[in-house]
């Protein structure tokens, strides 16, 4: 398909033996959830998509984004955003500088500043631009991380158990915020999670990876 994220016959190997195999399309605005036991290779799949596959893994198959084959593109040219469990805000930059990191070059200083301020306002963090990221609370950090990723205008969004570190109260709040922003920007979202609640809230296709045989296949595809 022309728009959205497509995984065509993607198989991830560790030392020649196959770990997982996925073949699926993610339409813009949809959230596809991948679930499975620990160690089955979910995060490795995401690494393959971002182009940062660790050295002891190999993979076959192709990844298409908005009609372009990005399987062999350099990691920084793929336009695929990712959020991890930890916010991973750059500790040496202020909140505003973190956000500015992903902004496309161009535009005057004041234009860029305006966009940063707007992004902060969108998530209720007005005036946080000059702050030290280490002084923020968990929820605030998660929001900054999200907006940082969105400001770089990705064409797809990957989520690697992004809400696992948040306590129950924050969790729903941040989760809804992420899905809203993604939907409003029509981004295809691929989420890896342990939490059934996350999968329910995503409301999309759930791919469950099994662990019985070396040839892990899609054992069930259910509509959320």
């Amino acid at each position: 398909m022309d728009k959205g994220l497509s995984l065509r016959d993607v198989t991830v190997f560790k030392d020649r033996s196959p770990l997982i195999r996925v073949d699926h399309d993610v339409a813009p605005g949809d959230v596809v959830t991948i679930m499975g036991p620990s160690g089955v290779g979910k995060s490795t799949l995401l690494a393959f998509i971002t182009g940062t596959l660790p050295g002891d893994f190999t993979a076959t198959g192709t990844v298409w984004l908005d009609g372009h084959d990005i399987t062999y593109a350099a990691a920084h040219q793929r336009r695929v955003g990712i959020l991890f469990q930890d916010d991973l805000l750059f500790p040496h930059l202020s909140v505003g500088a973190n956000l500015a990191f992903g902004l496309r070059p161009g535009g005057s200083r004041s234009d860029r500043q305006t966009r940063i301020d707007a992004a902060l306002a969108e998530v209720g963090l007005d005036g946080f631009a000059p702050r030290d990221p280490a002084t923020l609370s968990g929820g605030q950090k998660a929001r900054v991380a999200l907006m940082r990723m969105l400001l770089s205008e990705p064409c797809a969004l990957l989520l690697d158990e992004p809400f696992a570190r948040l306590d129950a109260a924050l969790r729903a709040q941040v989760r809804d915020m992420v899905f809203d922003r993604a939907r409003s920007r029509a981004l295809p979202v691929l989420m890896v999670t342990h939490d059934a609640e996350d999968a329910q809230a995503a409301g999309g296709v759930i791919i469950t990876l099994g662990d019985e045989s070396p040839h892990n296949r899609i054992t069930s595809v259910t509509q959320g």
Binding site: T50, H76, Q77, R78, V80, F84, F90, F101, M149, S152
Partner: peptide
């Protein structure tokens, strides 16, 4: 933490930029 590098690459930073800026 190599994930910083992954994030930075996702934010469209080239490998050189990651080295010098992050």
């Amino acid at each position: 933490d190599a994930r910083m590098g992954v994030i930075a690459a996702a934010l469209r930073a080239s490998p050189d930029r990651i080295l010098w800026r992050v």
